[in-house]
Amino acid sequence: MASFFEKFKQGLAKTKEGFVGEISSLVKNQFEIDDDFIDKVEEVLISSDIGVATSMEVVDDLRDHVNRIGFDHKEELFTFLQEHLSKSLDRTTTDFVEGFFQPNKKPYIIVLVGVNGVGKTTTIAKLAKLFHQKGKTVMLAAADTFRAAATEQLEIWAKRVEAEVISTQQGADPAAIAFDAGKAALARDVDVLIVDTAGRLHTKVNLMEELKKINRVLDKAVAGAPHETLLVLDATTGQNAIMQAKQFREVVDVTGLVVTKLDGTAKGGMVFSIQKELQLPVRFVGLGEQVDDLKPFDAETFVEALFNEN
């Protein structure tokens, strides 16, 4: 686990630098907590993509606290912000992940959905690797039949993580692949089937209908499938991520989120607004391009890493 925390913190170092760095410098240069200071805290929060509503709430509470009690030193201020932000995070993920990699259903079917370019295929490779490490046999379904070479991309990843791929030619019906893959997973007795879907903007009604169909036929191939539908979100996305989550959840039964590209951006605020507004738990975070750069999301560590100063 130690290495996991290391990696997690490393990946989040950028976030930390931004967030803690800015607040620290605020406290150093300014001993009194006045309106100006509070405004700056608000700026730091909003600039982290935490979202206007959540930021305002935290700031209001902060202002209230200052007026009633006040802070003695900056550590207290951190603790205060830490508590407020972590309030909106789901902490059950650790238990979830244990169960996730030891599913009691077979084949256990996971569908990944999301808008274009968020990193669905890469995330699938990483997930497959994690299952593989736990001694599970993994099959991948290349149901992204739209984007050029999406299948090839999945096949290259599959080779690296020793998984079988069910695919067809570009332009074919993605639901048909999903169905075939479901049947194949049953027949070949694999533990886990992960279905890659084409990126689609949540506003395209037809494409969202197609997604509905994919999940519907999966249920026909294997009763009760899919067992998980993970929505992949790009951490650099702003407040539109909430719209995406809302729309996708309306169409398919989204069970959790994967937030990718958290290693690059200096802001991790996405996580707060999404969980707060949608109660959709973040299950995994993507912290890099390597195949083992996918980590279970851990709220405590996330918040701690955000505020820990070193």
Partner: peptide, 12 residues
């Protein structure tokens, strides 16, 4: 650049 980018657009 992705038109849906958030606050970080500026940094990138």
């Amino acid at each position: 650049a992705d038109g849906m980018t958030g606050q970080d657009a500026v940094n990138t």
